[in-house]
Design a protein around this nucleic acid. Structure first.
Lengths: 117, 117
DNA sequence: CCGGATCCAAATAGATACTG
DNA sequence: CAGTATCTATTTGGATCCGG
């Protein structure tokens, strides 16, 4: 199945590119991991966890993750506002796979200055 | 293990980000799939397979893939030059994992107007 | 044939100010 | 509190010319 990618108009419409499009961007994965760790997180809480993220990047990423069905946004209509984010089941199922990328990466990552270099 | 990402300076130095850095870019995956399919491929051959890739993008991608140890470049010192590319064992081992991303993506990709294809 | 070098366009990310 | 709007900086990919 993997082979068809080349023929398929440069893999625009493949499952692989679809998956990658969900997690592309500098911070989406970090957000997902935060949600996995803390289960239910409010907007500013998330922003505090991911210290270096900007407002715009965070809010764009959250909107896309929600649109793609990986996370669930719950808004409480009150003053002051309260919004909570958490992983959907789809999001959770993706995390299992992404975890394998971590393991592979840890195994193959070049050791920095330790072993020999 | 996955949880430490948030603490780890925004996951700069994690296995996950390392893995993603290897395959980031618009065409790296396509190149890897080509090599997986055709085993040993010359530069211009590759360029013909991936019709829309530009010269610069292809050569940059190949250099990085080689530097990262995913592919092997063999140069034949002759006129005209001949250079062959193929997957390394490391590259091959990564493909197994990436294949799972394809499968997940195919399973979760929203169907577009066509029931099945 | 293989690719480097250069210049340009597009996409992505960050800083900051503002709003219900 | 939870965002949006705007303007800029950085990164990325593409087109083209040149050289061994």
């Amino acid at each position: 199945m993997i082979v068809n990618y080349i023929e398929k108009a440069n893999f625009e419409d493949t499952g692989f590119s679809y998956t990658l499009s969900l997690i592309s961007g500098k911070y989406k994965m970090v957000i997902l991991y935060c949600l996995m760790e803390f289960h239910v997180v409010r907007y500013n809480e998330l922003k505090r966890y991911i210290k270096t993220i900007s407002h715009k990047t965070l809010s764009n990423a959250l909107k896309e993750l929600e649109k793609d069905g990986l996370i669930i946004r719950t808004e409480y209509p009150q003053i002051p506002p309260k919004v909570e984010y958490r992983l959907s089941n789809t999001g959770l199922s993706l995390m299992n796979i992404l975890d394998q990328l971590c393991i592979w990466g840890d195994a193959h990552k070049p050791k920095t200055e330790k072993a020999d270099v």
